[in-house]
Simulated assay, not measured.
Amino acid sequence: MSGIRAEVVSHYFAGDTLLVPELPALTERYGPPDVALLPINGLRIRTAGNRQVVMNAEEAAELAAALRPKLAVPQHYAFTGGPVGDRFVLKSDKDPARFVEAATRLAPPYRSRSSPRANRSPSHPEHWSWLGLGGSEPARHS
């Protein structure tokens, strides 16, 4: 069998969302998730007055600190609108290290770990890094 295998009980997938006041309260209702997948690109639409439409790395780290997942995985940092879209319409942050730094600072029990393929280019689909709360790695590559 190939792919990522894990014994995960609960997860939170933030999709492409902004940090809104209701999100940190999710743990009051459901408890901390085992895994939180958080967008970190801070996507902005230049043609809409540079309006931010997705949380950035700092905001995602704030949410990780509030949700207290065992594993926080940054996502969507390699988003692209294509050559024309990136240059004229969209603006985003493509550096996952900003999330790692912010989460380490805002949620001190976290420590950074990387996948076996994390030394590749951030735009490569197999590149990802994650933050965990100690113990054994909850996901493994096969």
Rank of each mutant, 00 (worst) to 15 (best):
G31K: 06
A64C: 11
R140A: 15
N56T: 06
L38I: 02
E101W: 11
H76Y: 04
V73S: 06
T104L: 06
L90E: 02
L67E: 05
A66R: 08
G132T: 14
G134W: 08
P109H: 04
R140L: 15
P69T: 03
S129P: 06
L106Q: 01
S112D: 14
V54A: 08
R5E: 12
E101G: 10
H141L: 14
G85M: 07
E62P: 10
L131F: 05
S2N: 13
S121L: 09
R51L: 15
I40H: 01
M1E: 11
S114Y: 10
P125G: 05
R29C: 11
F79K: 01
K70D: 15
V84F: 15
P32G: 09
P108G: 03
F99L: 08
G49V: 10
D95Y: 07
L131Y: 06
P116E: 07
A48C: 14
P21G: 01
E137T: 05
A57M: 01
G3T: 04
V35E: 00
Y30H: 13
E101R: 13
R105N: 09
F88V: 08
L26S: 06
A64R: 02
P39A: 08
P83Y: 09
A102M: 03
A48V: 15
P24L: 02
G49A: 03
L131R: 04
V73F: 03
G81A: 05
P109R: 01
R5Q: 13
R117T: 13
S92C: 12
E7R: 14
A25D: 11
S92P: 00
E22I: 04
L131I: 02
L90Y: 12
P24N: 05
L18R: 09
G134R: 04
R117G: 10
R87M: 13
M1Q: 12
R44P: 00
V9W: 15
I45A: 06
R117P: 02
R68I: 10
